[in-house]
């Protein structure tokens, strides 16, 4: 439960660095590569926030299963929704 202050500060710094990277990638305007990299960096930031600021790292196993389940459902929507649009 008790996350050391140093870890929290480090995560905060890491978040700011990833934010800077994301803005940089966007400004380079690399087309599809920017899209992929920006989405990947956003996922990384989200993972850091959920793992440390929401403390999923120390949550009970069943909670981690729930988190995975929620992710799976987002994935279902993200995969099944475009099927129609990509094949029209």
């Amino acid at each position: 439960m008790n996350r050391p202050i140093r870890a929290l500060l480090l995560i905060w710094l890491a978040l700011l660095v990833v934010l800077g990277l994301g803005v940089g990638v966007a400004l380079l305007e690399l087309g599809t590569w920017s899209l992929v990299l920006n989405l990947a960096l956003a996922l990384l930031m989200a993972a850091l926030l959920v793992a440390v600021f929401m403390d999923l790292l120390h949550a009970a196993p069943v909670i981690r299963v729930f988190a995975l389940g929620a992710l799976l459902w987002v994935f279902l929507l993200a995969v099944m929704l475009p099927v129609d649009y990509l094949t029209r």
Binding site: G22, V23, V25, A26, E29, L30, L35, N38, L41
Partner: peptide, 10 residues
């Protein structure tokens, strides 16, 4: 929100 709206600019 930030990534979708502001960063996907190319």
């Amino acid at each position: 929100v930030f990534t979708s709206l502001y960063l996907l600019r190319s």
